[in-house]
């Protein structure tokens, strides 16, 4: 059977997905053009360690409202090899489900002590850690009563590795109707943070969220 590229599916009840999802299958890349599809981002970012503590706007400031949580994990390729020194960008809504983004017009409550934007780097073993406030769910489609479940956005960029994904929370009643969660099917558990206890630390709990970046790009320059 002839090998074909993926047909990207449209997220149910997601208007933007309907407007922006290509209707044609993706085209396969011939081997002798494949290398050009592995962008290699320059590692020229300088970040402040305090950016990994999203529970406060800045060091010395009070914590935002809601439950402080710790998120930890390892970033790796499909062979389990760590993806080192990658830039991790994080953004999430506050406990009321509101982003500080200028284009969030939901009118939900803002928290003067929560920004919801952070950055960190993975270490030499691909491990990362950041602290934030557990985000709230929010009504994304008031017209049909569809909510977005609690989620944290993560963008990872390191060398030729690239992914933008979201970490979800097990047991959120809105998970089942989320358009992208529906498309993920049985693989949804890969996008769930695994809750663990943080005894003696000043957190409600921790979540382990390991991230496996698929495809040839993460290992392109190791295997060629």
């Amino acid at each position: 059977m002839e090998k074909l590229g993926r047909q990207i599916e449209i997220g149910p009840t997601d208007n933007t997905s309907n407007e922006r999802t290509p209707r044609n299958r993706l085209h396969l890349i011939p081997d002798n053009a494949r290398g050009s599809f592995a962008p290699y981002a320059p590692q020229n970012y300088g970040i402040n360690p305090a950016e990994a503590d999203m529970t406060r706007i800045a060091p010395g400031r009070p914590r935002g409202e809601g439950d402080a949580i710790k998120v930890t994990g390892q970033i790796m390729d499909e062979f389990g090899r760590p993806i080192r020194n990658s830039l991790i960008e994080i953004w999430n809504a506050n406990k009321y489900g509101r982003y500080t983004h200028i284009e969030d017009h939901s009118g939900l409550q803002l928290d003067p002590n929560f920004l919801g934007v952070g950055r960190t780097l993975s270490d030499n073993d691909g491990n990362y850690e950041f602290w934030t406030i557990r985000p709230g769910e929010y009504l994304a489609r008031p017209d049909i009563g569809r909510w977005r479940p609690k989620h944290i956005h993560l963008s990872i960029r390191g060398g030729s590795s690239r992914i933008i994904t979201q970490m979800y929370f097990a047991g959120d009643p809105h998970n089942d109707t989320d358009p992208m969660r529906i498309l993920m099917g049985d693989n949804f558990d890969k996008n769930l943070g695994k809750e663990y206890e943080t005894d003696g630390e000043d957190f409600d709990c921790g979540y382990q969220f390991d991230i496996v970046i698929g495809g040839k790009n993460p290992t392109f320059f190791e295997n060629n």
Partner: peptide, 30 residues
């Protein structure tokens, strides 16, 4: 970790997800 040549021994990738409408503009400052 030992490298595997068999697809079946590979880890299952984390699902990519949408950017969402609220990617922080300030992250592009530099």
């Amino acid at each position: 970790m030992t490298q595997s040549s068999g697809k079946s021994n590979r880890l299952i990738a984390t699902n990519e997800d949408t950017l969402g409408p609220y990617y922080p503009i300030s992250l592009c400052d530099n």
